[in-house]
Design a protein around this nucleic acid. Structure first.
Length: 919
RNA sequence: GCGCGGUUAGCUCAGCGGUAGAGCGCUUGCUUCACACGCAAGAAGUCGCAGGUUCAAACCCUGCACCGCGCACCA
């Protein structure tokens, strides 16, 4: 136990203890230690992007996980918090590609070729990967780092391929030509979840189309995308629309590309229920290759679907000479100009519509017809049921509705990506059309289902082992969606498919902590994978954090520059301060409006804790002395009872994942109850002459502090560890129960019946202490009302019926900064006009030695009387209400009567004082 | 269009049937021997609007308004 420095300096302490925890193996999970008496507790981290950096979102998320993990350890559980990172396909590839472009090394990744490019990505990963892991350590995360996993570790990749092959053989994975979301920047297909709808204000263009069979007759079409006209293969009207039904079966002359002969531009006018009467003109141009709804119309009517665009979003030759090679938005302008030239443009009107954007590249996605791999989700029923039945619980519960809704209308998942960075699809295409020949050509034993004919007629083999002779086989070029590896995270990180000790001990995991924004991307898919491959739920509870926003409620974003760097905050305020500040302002289920002020508050709180500990240390004496029940003061009993309340409150809040409530309770208890009242009151005994009483109070102080540090530890791991050792609380404990580290000490339990009985802690102790505090509050009020500066010591007189102990007098004196507190008998009479206040222990007087301002005191009393009368009126109005008296329960009425009489007494007293002033 | 949140002190939020609360900010006083990252006292709220249920409504019910989010979507 060393002397605590005058100010709390987090940096040195944080580094020191983190190293000590690591060296002591405090974070290590031991499956073999799991027994019925030492149950397992496990969390898998939501793997951050391997090349990412820590954000406030991570701080929130990981602090919560750390609190859960640390508390579980203190509760005597065997804890596994399994860390790792995600390869983040598109994100990482995009960053690397952009960097290489900026450096002038390439124009496009094709310049390097697949292998060379991947080398660059791995280089990048080696260089920048793991930064976030170091940052999590700075935050204090107690992960078992020896078990760190990466989604592209060889073993992990094998899991991904195994699952793909299995689902392929089961027929759940298929390849097909479908309308997909295409990102022209990343040049890959995306899943529906990666498309974000954004409201856009654009134009609705009305242009005329001539009917081929009736020259001079025109239909007007409304569209937002005139550049796709060259891809139109029909006009559609609703067959029930009397305005147009007569034209069904005729043909329209598509205006573009204008250079084509008229007969090559004739497109049928068809009837389709999809067309709305009310929208636009009621005539729809049908572009099957570039619009999802149009594609479906095309399917129904057997229309051709010419693709008029390139993968990068520029128009191709089919779009015509005027548009070819132009970017789609440039082409739009040109198309409008062409229509205007042709005299076909009728009008343009401003139009609000929703456009799907690529989540990553933030550009409008292009609906595009292409061949992709799709997954029909497995284990859907079990996954729905487990949440519906409450066997798996969501916190806050309302997210179950969102989950159920999504699960009800599951669409097949497009899992192939036209990228290089990721898990390459384990499929090889056969150079031939004979299934039997293909089977033979695999060259090793393969399940019959592993070789199949696909929709387009080609023959594919899927398996973990490549075909022996690659002469006849060509591997699929695509990689898998990143989430196709993430969805296996809970078990793929634990050694699956081997039945490892870790899996046996720690799976299913206990809690999952993540953001609601990835409920579909990740949570729902993990549940389905869990059921499909482990036959049960992957985690029992899911805690959804809020989203971190700035003070104005805006999402944190790089472009807005409104996302502070957590490491700066740690450097400035300390990791504990950051953790506490964030947790205190993150209520269950609510978004978090981040304000640096919160971190400042956390820092201030750490300082308070530090100084309270310093104060204890300055009193000297050995820690953890025995408490003698017969020597306990009112204050001692009071703080023990308050501590008991705090333990219960914090434990209860944590059980329900109400972290901000737990933090608030701790804050309130320690600052407002322990420091503001108990610590001040204890000075009466600490400065007194009775050594036994003094020691006993120190014992109580140590008892409370030792418990408080434990309660705080999950929130404030560093400072509590430092103080735990600094105050010597570790000294008497076994090494594995707090002797080595506070993180292994026992989580406090509420004080039991026997404890209360032994120490004589009764509810009335709280009341007695409170009564005394009321005297103090009254006295401070008098000081204020009569402008006595708080540093000026003045005498007070307390005149009451009940006796007041010498100890209580001393305490009140200290808390009032009084020169003296005279306890006067009934004979004592104050000088006329002496300010006074009624307290539970009698009248408290502030004699001002003839300096009384009678008028001021009269005014003050007048105000107080008015206030009391108002309260009295309120309660009397209620009590005089016949329906209230007859309808309300007895207890409520009694309580109101009591309240009335209390106010009445008070009023009587004050009126007497006021009357004495009047004459 | 459907669904989910929210609307309480200047700000951020707690309270969810029986006397309106916290932190920050603000005002005033104080360097009182743990802490000015502090101590003490204070000002400040028709609890979004309108109905209803109840002896009693921030709290329960209905409708409306506004803010935010998600899903779906008409070119």
């Amino acid at each position: 136990m060393s002397e605590l420095s005058k100010t709390y300096e987090p940096q040195a302490i944080e580094e020191k203890w983190y190293a000590s925890w690591l060296a002591g193996g405090c974070f290590d999970a031991h499956p073999e230690r799991v027994t019925p008496d030492r149950p397992a507790y496990s969390i898998v981290i939501p793997p951050p992007n391997v090349t990412g950096v820590l954000t406030l979102g991570h701080v929130l998320n990981n602090t919560i996980q750390d609190i859960l993990a640390r508390r579980a350890r203190m509760q005597g559980k065997e804890v596994l918090w399994l860390p790792g990172t995600d390869h983040a396909g598109i994100a990482t590839q995009t960053v690397v590609e952009r960097t290489l472009k900026k450096a002038g090394e390439i124009k496009h990744r094709d310049d390097l070729g697949r292998e060379k490019f991947l080398e660059k990505v791995w280089e990048w990963k080696e260089k920048h990967g793991g930064i976030i892991i170091q940052q999590l350590k700075k935050l204090g995360a107690s992960c078992d780092w020896k078990r760190e996993r990466f989604t592209m570790d060889p073993e992990y990749s094998a899991c991904v391929q195994r699952v793909f092959a299995d689902l392929f053989e089961k027929g759940s994975i298929y390849r097909g030509k479908r309308m997909v979301n295409w990102c022209p920047v990343s040049r890959t297909a995306l899943s529906d979840e990666e498309v974000i709808m954004k409201a856009q204000s654009g134009m609705l263009y009305h242009f005329r189309v001539e009917i081929a069979e009736r020259p001079g007759t025109f239909l007007t079409v409304a569209t937002t995308r005139p550049e796709t006209i060259p891809g139109d293969t029909a006009l559609a009207v609703n067959p029930k629309d009397s305005r147009y039904s007569e034209f069904i079966g005729l043909h329209a002359v598509r205006p573009l590309p204008a250079e084509l002969p008229r007969e090559e531009r004739l497109i049928p006018i068809i009837g389709d229920e999809h067309v709305e009467f009310g929208f636009g003109t009621g005539v729809l141009k049908v572009t099957p290759a570039h619009d999802k709804a149009d594609f479906e119309i095309g399917q129904r009517h057997g229309l051709a679907a010419p693709d008029i665009m390139n993968p990068d979003g520029t128009m191709n030759a089919l779009a015509g000479v005027a548009l070819a090679g132009k970017d789609r938005f440039e082409a739009r302008k040109i198309a409008v100009a062409l229509l205007t030239e042709l005299g076909l443009m009728e009008k343009e009107e401003p139009h609000q519509n929703n456009v799907g954007f690529s989540e990553r590249a933030d550009v409008p996605i292009e609906p595009r017809l292409s061949s992709q791999w799709f997954l029909r989700y497995p284990s859907q029923d079990a996954s729905r049921e487990v949440v519906k039945s409450g066997k798996m619980r969501f916190f806050p519960e309302r997210w179950t509705k969102v989950y159920e809704h999504w699960m009800e209308q599951l669409q097949d998942w497009c899992i192939s990506r036209q990228l290089w960075w990721g898990h390459r699809i384990p499929v090889w295409y056969f150079a031939g059309s004979d299934l039997a020949a293909a089977r033979a050509a695999v060259g090793h034993e393969a399940a019959p289902e592993a070789v199949r004919q696909l929709e387009d007629g080609s023959i594919a083999y899927c398996g973990l082992i490549a075909p022996a002779d690659l002469t006849y086989w060509q591997q699929d070029n695509d990689v898998l969606d990143t989430w196709f590896s993430s969805w296996l995270w809970p078990f793929a990180t634990m050694g699956w498919p081997e039945e490892t000790a870790t899996l046996k001990a720690f799976y299913p995991t206990t809690d999952l902590v993540t953001g609601p924004d990835i409920i579909f991307f990740w949570v729902a898919r993990m549940i389905m994978a869990g059921f499909e491959y482990r036959g049960e739920l992957p985690f029992r509870n899911v805690y959804f954090t809020g989203i971190i926003r700035d003070k104005q409620g805006r999402k944190m974003s790089k472009s807005l520059g409104n996302s502070p760097d957590p490491l700066d905050l740690i450097a400035k305020f300390g990791a504990d301060a950051l953790r506490f500040g964030v947790m205190r302002s993150a209520p269950l289920g609510q978004d978090v409006l981040f304000d640096e002020k919160n971190v400042e508050l956390g820092r201030n709180f750490c300082t308070k804790l530090w100084n309270a500990a310093r104060f204890r240390q300055m009193q000297g004496g050995a820690p953890e002395g025995e408490i003698h029940s017969d020597l306990l003061s009112t204050d001692d009993k009071w703080i023990l009872l308050r501590l008991d309340g705090a333990i219960a409150e914090v434990s209860h809040a944590l059980d329900e994942y109400r972290f901000s409530d737990a933090a608030q309770a701790l804050y309130r208890f320690f600052w407002n109850e322990y420091c503001d009242w108990y610590l001040e009151a204890s000075k009466a005994l600490l400065n007194g002459s009775d050594a036994a009483l003094r020691d006993n109070t120190l014992a109580v102080t140590d008892f409370v502090l030792a418990h408080t540090l434990r309660l705080f530890h999950p929130f404030l791991p560093f400072i509590t560890e430092e103080l735990w050792h600094g105050l010597g609380f570790n000294q008497e404990l076994p090494a594995d129960q707090g002797g080595h580290s506070l993180m292994q000490a026992r989580w406090p339990l509420p004080l039991g019946e026997d404890f209360r009985a032994h120490y004589g802690l009764l509810p009335e102790d709280e009341a007695r202490a409170q009564a005394r505090f009321d005297v103090v509050l009254a006295g401070r009020g008098l000081r204020r009302d009569f402008n006595i500066p708080s540093n000026k010591r003045v005498p007070f007189v307390l005149k009451g019926e009940a006796p007041v102990s010498a100890h209580d007098v001393e305490v009140i004196k200290i808390l009032l900064n009084a020169e003296s507190l005279e306890v006067a008998g009934n004979i004592w009479e104050p000088t006329r006009g002496t300010p006074s206040s009624l307290t539970p222990l009698g009248h408290l007087y502030l004699p001002l030695n003839g300096l009384v301002d009678v008028a001021a005191e009269r005014e003050r009393l007048g105000k107080e009387i008015a206030k009391i009368e108002q309260e009295l009126l309120k309660v009397r109005t209620k009590l005089s209400n016949e329906t209230f008296v007859s309808g309300a329960p007895e207890a409520v009425i009694t309580e109101h009567r009591q309240r009335e009489s209390d106010w009445q007494d008070k009023l009587g007293e004050i009126r007497r004082v006021a009357a004495a002033l009047a004459d």
